[in-house]
């Protein structure tokens, strides 16, 4: 197995001792099939036990290890060493405050996720004893893509608008709201629209599309945002120009 010496430049910041972040470079012998996370684990196990970062599944589904790799938001467990040169720079996810080293403060994201009521608000009440709701594969397909979000927050790190306007609810949360709005079992769209069709909601998006480009799960939050915008516009016309038409 071919091995390559990588200079891993890692942003370090300890709020107890550092006035500002700095970079520390580690020389790491990497196998070509490794991912950046493997290199970080090598550092942690062999070179420097004080380095802090989040990780768990190592298979791009738990969403823990989002970070900037050479300036781009990536999952460290899916950023392959062979796609980079001999120098790799690793920083915490952009647009989030740094807690410590590569660990960011994510409370804002969690609160935004919760704010869009990301749960089924059933159209009809049905006891469990009455069995499942029917949903055809075609109905499932209308929202399936938006269920695939792993909450890794890469889209927030890529979003220029979230960087400028921190109140913006942001791509993943809006995509999740859209996911439930599109679900044939759901009747909660009006409740969610109050949050996501607001100024801090979809209208803040400038449709750069960076969110969809960096999404490791191909959720396409930009697509969801546009669909919500269109739907909100129709709501507005119905409400203001055709008040006799009920939504």
């Amino acid at each position: 197995m071919s091995e390559r010496q990588i200079q891993l430049e890692v942003l370090r910041y300890n709020p107890e001792t550092d006035s500002e972040p700095r970079f520390q470079t580690y020389s790491v012998p990497c196998l070509n099939e490794w991912v950046v996370l493997d290199a970080l684990n090598y550092v942690k196990d062999n070179l420097d036990t004080t380095l802090s970062y989040r990780w768990s599944c190592h298979m791009a589904v738990c969403g823990s290890c989002g970070m900037m790799v050479n300036g781009e938001p990536k999952l460290a467990c899916k950023a392959f060493i062979h796609e980079y040169g001999d120098q790799i720079r690793v920083e915490p996810l952009a647009n989030f405050p740094i807690e410590r080293d590569l660990v960011t403060v994510v409370e804002d994201f969690i609160a935004k996720l919760a704010s869009v009521k990301p749960y089924l608000i059933p159209k009809e009440d049905k006891p469990v004893s009455a069995g499942e709701f029917k949903q055809t594969p075609a109905q499932l397909l209308t929202f399936k893509q938006y269920t695939l979000c792993i909450n890794c927050m890469l889209c927030y790190a890529a979003c220029p608008q979230y960087g400028l306007v921190p109140e913006f609810i942001g791509p993943a949360a809006i995509a999740l709201a859209h996911r439930y709005n599109q679900d044939s079992r759901d009747g909660g769209r009006d409740e969610r629209q109050e949050v996501i069709a607001s100024h801090e909601g979809v209208w803040e998006c400038s449709f750069v599309g960076a969110c969809s480009e960096v999404c490791p799960k191909h959720v396409d939050p930009a697509g969801a945002l546009q669909q919500v915008k269109v739907a909100s516009t129709i709501d507005w016309y119905k409400e203001h120009l055709m008040p006799w038409v009920k939504k």
């Binding site: 749960y119 089924l120 469990v128 499942e132 594969p137 499932l140 399936k144 269920t147 439930y180 079992r185």
Partner: peptide
């Protein structure tokens, strides 16, 4: 079934059952 009622996107048969 409870999980289905909470929105779990179970894969479906053509007729819409789980």
């Amino acid at each position: 079934i409870q999980l289905e009622h909470w929105g779990c996107p179970w894969s479906r048969e053509p007729n819409g059952s789980v």
